[in-house]
């Protein structure tokens, strides 16, 4: 009887694994098969025209958008997390509120961020559809993620490191920046990778804030479409479905590259 149960459980676990992995493989395979044949050099032309829907400007825009969003979100997220973990007293009311807020923010659909971004950054601050408005919106969106992963990373640094540092007469600031933060880097980087994934994959929040102009941006206030938005636009217009698949291939490769590079960086940083 026990043997039978164990056999059933085992098959169930195996089946779940195979199905999950199978879906992933199928998805990637499907995109590759549909996309790779249309991955022509002309798709990487400098400029986009309605005959040749080049994705090159979108690639540049994606990179810009990602960098800018991270530049805004990482400092805020990092310092908030440091305050919450290292400075705030336990059971502090303010901390509870900040934590509740960031948890709530993490669960809000991205289209709501888009709407907020449009009303606040685009209209109220008068930035228009622009890279700036888009990345500001995205940084609000990824902030909770960065805060939470950084918090976890800081908490996982053993207290004995802090004790040792204080015991040698180091102050709070030195302890945090020379001992705790370096040890937390891999965890923080993991959060940043997740955040990059969300930025690169985001469409809903960007359509209303960064617009869909498929050109290389002149400045931070020009409208710009990222790869995901590009793909969304192509497929919703319906004339360039094949090129949309080709874009998906490039997106996949970019995400894969980012993950690999960050993993290498994380390994470099932790090694002494």
């Amino acid at each position: 009887m026990a043997k039978q149960t164990s056999f059933i459980l085992k098959s169930f676990v195996m089946a779940a694994t195979i199905i999950t992995f199978g879906i992933l493989l199928f998805l990637i395979g499907y995109i590759l098969i549909k996309g790779v044949p249309y991955l022509t050099p002309s798709l990487f032309n400098m400029s986009y025209t309605s005959e040749n829907v080049s994705m090159f400007p979108s690639i540049i825009n994606t990179v810009l958008m990602t960098l800018l969003s991270l530049m805004i979100a990482i400092p805020f997220g990092l310092f908030t997390a440091i305050y919450l973990v290292e400075y705030a007293k336990r059971g502090n009311k303010l901390v509870e509120i900040i934590r509740l807020t960031s948890e709530t923010l993490a669960g809000i659909p991205s289209i709501v961020y888009g709407l907020f971004g449009m009303l606040f950054f685009v209209t109220y601050l008068g930035w228009g559809y622009s890279i700036l408005a888009g990345s500001a919106t995205l940084s609000v969106m990824i902030l909770p993620l960065i805060i939470r992963t950084t918090e976890e990373a800081l908490k996982s640094v053993p207290d004995s490191y802090r004790e040792a540092s204080f015991g040698l007469g180091a102050g709070q600031l030195r302890t945090v920046f020379h001992i705790v933060l370096p040890s937390a880097v891999p965890g923080i980087l993991a959060g940043v990778i997740l955040a990059i994934g969300r930025i690169v994959g985001e469409t809903a929040a960007l359509i209303y804030t960064a617009g869909t102009v498929a050109k290389l941006p002149k400045d931070l206030l020009s409208s710009a479409r990222t790869l995901s938005v590009h793909m969304y636009t192509l497929s919703s217009e319906g004339f360039h479905t094949n090129e949309a698949f080709a874009t998906a291939v490039v997106l996949l490769i970019i995400v894969l590259l980012i993950n690999t590079v960050s993993m290498v960086i994380a390994r470099k940083v932790t090694k002494i």
Binding site: S160, A164, G167, L168, S183
Partner: peptide, 30 residues
């Protein structure tokens, strides 16, 4: 400064994840 004058060795070795040199130099650098 008090903790500089009154040093402490803990129950479990609690070296930082750095080189031997950097561990010993951490205090003076501080």
């Amino acid at each position: 400064l008090l903790r500089k004058r009154v040093g402490m060795v803990f129950q479990k070795p609690n070296l930082f994840p750095m080189s031997i040199y950097d561990n010993v130099a951490y205090g003076p650098r501080t």
